[in-house]
Write a protein that binds this DNA or RNA. Structure first.
Ligand SMILES: [Mn+2]
Ligand SMILES: [Mn+2]
Ligand SMILES: [Zn+2]
Ligand SMILES: [Zn+2]
Lengths: 148, 148
DNA sequence: ACTATTTTTGCAAATTACTTGCAAATCAAA
DNA sequence: TTTGATTTGCAAGTAATTTGCAAAAATAGT
């Protein structure tokens, strides 16, 4: 694939490197592989999916978890708990803020690029979704912790 | 506590029994204990917290998980994934729809009885929260699964 | 480039929330 | 009651995620 468009590939490489540098993370092969994958194929992936999408033996499972946790810590990646026994990870592109809907039965995931609940639920109903529930959680640093 | 107001206690008992019946669940001691706790003390609890809040040896850990899963299935209880390694459970009162904010650092949980994101974030800022993020996930049955 | 210091990785073993098999206890309907 | 179906407790199992440690790679200074 990189052979088809060497210029674009170099751009991507530079982007990945810059993102890591901006966040104060050193540039390593596993980190470039994982972040590169999340940039190219976007959508929430489980650690296992990431492991199997990368070239065989290019990166250990433990390394994937460690890198993903670091990415989440610096808010380069977001975590979803769409399925209760497994976290999903996705590149946190500040210009493409969105949310997800997962079917309770088949687990198919779709994206929503709007951010108003009533609108979203109406759209979901139009799309044929039934028995819609949502869960909205905020994460922040509280006043006490911000001072201490 | 039940000694202080036997009438209220009977009402609560009846409420619990009714809720279970409405959802087609049989009335058992563990189910009454767990649902009773979630009704009395409201707020998201982990399975472990529930286990330790109940009278010693009144209910096994496995039973707690089994009951909670059944409650979630019939939408009597909601699940939150406020902390990544542990689910939290809360009574799903349709008349008190709300959401939560957890501090990234001290893990303190507060509730929000509004349901519009901009309003909520503004309120959070006023309350002194910093570095606010939110995560909104929808769960539903997709058109294909609703037909099949 | 080379070296020293720090950080990260791979591997294998550990952790832990959660689940499950099964026999005994409990529940619901008659 | 009786009886058949459901649920529970206990103990063992499962699976996602984490961790200890020695080797490998990255960074900073020369
Ligand atoms: Mn997405
Ligand atoms: Mn609550
Ligand atoms: Zn579906
Ligand atoms: Zn705090």
């Amino acid at each position: 694939m990189s052979l088809l468009n060497p210029k674009k590939e170099l751009e991507r490489e530079a982007l990945i490197t810059n993102l890591l540098k901006e966040k104060g993370l050193s540039i390593t092969a596993p980190r470039k592989l994982i972040l590169g994958l999340l940039l190219k194929e976007h959508g929430p992936f489980s650690a296992e999916e990431i492991l199997h999408s990368l070239p065989k033996n290019s990166c250990d499972q433990a390394t994937i978890y460690r890198c993903l946790n670091q990415f989440v810590e610096v808010q380069l990646v977001n975590t979803s708990f769409l399925e209760k026994d497994m976290a999903h990870f996705e590149y946190n592109d500040p210009h493409h803020h969105h949310h997800h809907i997962i079917c309770r039965i088949c687990k198919k995931i779709e994206s929503f690029h709007e951010c108003l609940m009533e609108k979203i639920e109406t759209n979901l109903q139009r799309k044929g979704y039934k028995d819609i529930q949502h869960r909205l959680e905020f994460f922040a640093v509280c006043e006490t912790c911000a001072k201490g």
